[in-house]
């Protein structure tokens, strides 16, 4: 299986600099955003793919190659940010996970916002 989806291993410094102000990244143009609603979307994977589809102007089922699974463990992000809350209160920690998927830099924030940005200007290879 080819692995065109790349995680941002060689881009850690950039993430650190940008990570503090969630999503406000002036160097990359945001293409689209979508709020993850577990009741509507079900899994986080679905919400991410729907956001990518909107960015590409195609239907979600046309976002096929490669699978997100080759880029990042979405289930782990879902667990970390949206998984098993304590009995009544949601977790309060704020955070963001960034990863590359095809031509985009995706950010998943703990408040549920998924940001799809163009990842121009950074050559991961």
């Amino acid at each position: 299986m080819t692995n065109n989806g790349r995680t941002t291993t060689n881009n850690d410094n950039e993430i650190e600099r940008n990570g503090s102000d969630l999503g406000r990244d002036t160097r990359r143009r945001q293409v689209t955003q979508r709020h993850y609603d577990p009741a509507r979307d079900g899994e986080l994977t679905t919400a991410i793919v729907f956001a990518v589809a909107e960015a590409e102007g195609v239907s979600p089922s046309e976002v096929t190659s490669p699978p997100l699974y080759d880029s990042v463990d979405v289930a782990a992000i879902e667990d970390a940010f949206f998984g098993s809350e304590s009995e009544s209160e949601p977790r309060r920690g704020a955070g963001v996970v960034e990863f590359r998927y095809v031509d985009y830099l995706l950010k998943v924030r703990s408040d549920g916002w998924i940001l799809v940005c163009e990842s121009t200007g950074v050559d991961p290879s």
């Binding site: 793919v49 089922s61 976002v63 699978p67």
Partner: peptide
């Protein structure tokens, strides 16, 4: 569902 099956 399809998207979740395919991608995860």
């Amino acid at each position: 569902v399809y998207v979740a099956l395919y991608h995860t």
